[in-house]
Simulated assay, not measured.
Amino acid sequence: MTSPQPLPEGASWILQITITSAQAAKAQWNEQLDKLRPIAGYDEATQTWSAHVGALNLAGLGTLQTLFDTARAYGTEVRLAPVPVPKSWRGPVFTGDSEIAALIRTQADAGRPLGHLPLA
């Protein structure tokens, strides 16, 4: 998986959530499907689920909670990345100057030594 590109300050974006399903016996696999299917789309080629969140409102937090509960129960891997708003998106969006954008930028910079500038 490629690293997300930094978004320009003030840009609109949504949170892309990618879930890698854990291998499991049929009964456990079906339990994962039951939890993920209502909130995420499945890409058979990459064997990953994906969901998007544009606000940390009740629906957005519910999606995140379900994904992290599923990860804890079944050993799935959940990754979060800010992405530009797709043309087909009709929901709320985050803006680059919000507190959540600052947190995402900080997390993306976590591996960078203090005082080193990010590569643009």
Rank of each mutant, 00 (worst) to 15 (best):
D109K: 09
G62H: 09
G62C: 06
E99M: 10
H52K: 12
P84H: 05
Q23L: 10
A40E: 07
Y42N: 03
G41P: 02
T70G: 00
W89R: 01
Q32I: 08
T2E: 12
W89G: 01
P113Y: 09
P92A: 15
Q65C: 02
T18I: 14
A110G: 02
G111A: 12
G96S: 06
Q47T: 11
P92Y: 02
V53L: 05
V83P: 01
I39H: 02
T63R: 07
L114H: 04
N57K: 04
V53K: 04
K87C: 02
S88V: 13
Y42D: 03
T70R: 01
P92I: 01
L15D: 06
W13C: 03
S21R: 15
Q65G: 03
Q65S: 12
S12T: 09
A11E: 15
G96N: 10
R112G: 02
R72M: 06
L33D: 07
D97K: 06
T2A: 14
Y42Q: 05
A55M: 05
A25G: 10
S88L: 14
P82L: 08
W89D: 07
L117R: 09
P38A: 10
T106A: 12
G54D: 10
W13Y: 14
A40Y: 12
H116P: 00
A51V: 10
A24N: 12
A108L: 15
G115R: 02
D43Q: 12
W89A: 02
E99Q: 07
Q32R: 07
A40T: 11
R79W: 00
R72E: 15
P8M: 09
E77W: 00
R37K: 15
P8H: 13
R105K: 08
R105N: 11
P6C: 08
F68H: 14
A81V: 06
G62Q: 12
N57I: 03
E9F: 15
S3Y: 06
S12P: 07
T20E: 12
A24K: 03
W49K: 02
H116T: 09
R79V: 10
E99R: 08
A27K: 12
S98H: 07
R105W: 12
T46R: 14
T48H: 01
L7F: 05
Q5S: 14
L80E: 05
L80R: 06
P84D: 14
Q28K: 13
A51Y: 08
Q47P: 00
L67T: 10
R37V: 12
L56M: 14
E99I: 08
R90P: 00
A11P: 00
R90A: 04
E44W: 05
G91T: 10
L7A: 08
I17V: 15
I17H: 02
G60L: 06
L56H: 02
L114T: 13
S3V: 04
A59V: 12
L58H: 04
Q107E: 14
K26H: 04
W49Y: 15
L119Y: 04
W49C: 01
T66N: 04
A71F: 04
G96K: 10
A22N: 03
S88T: 15
T20P: 00
K26M: 09
T46K: 08
V78T: 07
W13K: 01
W89P: 00
L56K: 04
S88H: 09
W49Q: 01
A108K: 02
I14D: 01
I17A: 01
L61I: 14
K26P: 01
Q16Y: 08
G115W: 04
W89C: 02
W29K: 13
S3F: 11
E77Q: 11
R72D: 14
